[in-house]
Measured scan of single mutants.
Amino acid sequence: SDEEKKVRDQAKRLGVNTEQLLKWARRQGDEDLVRIVERLLRS
């Protein structure tokens, strides 16, 4: 999905993997991002 591509691009920009991005999203309190990243991790 578009959202998932955006998440992957953001992880690349930050230089982190998906698990690290999830931690980062939780720290930001970004519920939408957390949900998308969790979906990516499960897929």
Rank of each mutant, 00 (worst) to 15 (best):
S1W: 11
S1N: 09
S1E: 10
S1F: 11
S1Y: 10
D2N: 09
D2M: 11
D2P: 11
E3V: 13
E3P: 11
E3K: 14
E3F: 12
E3N: 12
E3H: 11
E4I: 12
E4G: 07
E4L: 12
K5N: 06
K5M: 08
K5A: 08
K6P: 03
K6W: 14
K6V: 08
K6C: 15
V7A: 06
V7N: 04
V7M: 06
V7T: 04
V7R: 06
V7S: 06
R8W: 13
R8S: 05
D9Q: 09
D9V: 08
D9F: 09
D9H: 07
D9N: 09
D9A: 12
Q10M: 15
Q10D: 03
Q10S: 05
Q10R: 10
Q10E: 09
Q10P: 04
Q10A: 13
Q10L: 15
A11V: 10
A11I: 13
A11L: 14
A11T: 04
A11W: 14
A11N: 04
K12S: 06
K12D: 04
K12Y: 07
R13E: 03
R13C: 15
R13V: 06
R13A: 07
R13M: 07
R13F: 08
R13I: 08
R13P: 03
L14V: 03
L14Y: 05
G15S: 08
G15E: 03
G15D: 03
G15Y: 10
V16G: 07
V16F: 15
V16E: 02
N17F: 14
N17W: 15
N17V: 13
N17G: 05
N17R: 07
N17Y: 13
N17D: 08
T18Y: 15
T18M: 15
T18L: 15
T18S: 07
E19C: 15
E19T: 09
Q20A: 12
Q20G: 07
Q20K: 09
Q20S: 05
L21S: 00
L21I: 03
L21M: 03
L21H: 00
L21T: 00
L21C: 13
L21Y: 01
L22C: 13
L22S: 00
L22F: 02
L22N: 00
K23D: 15
K23N: 12
K23R: 13
K23A: 14
K23I: 10
W24G: 01
W24H: 02
W24I: 04
W24V: 02
A25F: 13
A25Q: 02
A25R: 01
A25D: 00
A25Y: 06
R26M: 09
R26I: 11
R26E: 10
R26F: 07
R26N: 02
R26V: 06
R27Q: 15
R27Y: 08
R27P: 01
R27M: 14
Q28F: 14
Q28H: 13
Q28K: 07
Q28A: 07
Q28W: 14
G29P: 02
G29I: 14
D30S: 07
D30T: 08
D30F: 15
D30Q: 08
D30P: 08
D30W: 15
E31A: 10
E31T: 10
E31W: 15
E31I: 12
D32G: 06
D32E: 11
D32K: 11
D32F: 14
D32Q: 10
D32M: 13
D32R: 14
D32T: 11
L33E: 00
L33M: 03
L33C: 06
L33V: 02
L33D: 00
V34R: 02
V34W: 06
V34P: 00
V34H: 01
V34E: 02
V34T: 02
R35L: 04
R35E: 06
R35W: 09
R35T: 03
R35A: 07
I36F: 11
I36M: 11
I36A: 08
I36P: 00
I36H: 03
V37K: 00
V37P: 00
V37S: 00
V37E: 00
E38A: 04
E38H: 03
E38W: 07
E38S: 04
E38M: 11
R39P: 00
R39L: 08
R39N: 03
R39A: 10
L40C: 11
L40I: 09
L40G: 00
L40F: 12
L40Y: 12
L41N: 01
L41P: 00
L41W: 02
R42Q: 08
R42E: 04
R42K: 11
R42H: 04
S43A: 11
S43V: 12
S43M: 14
S43I: 13
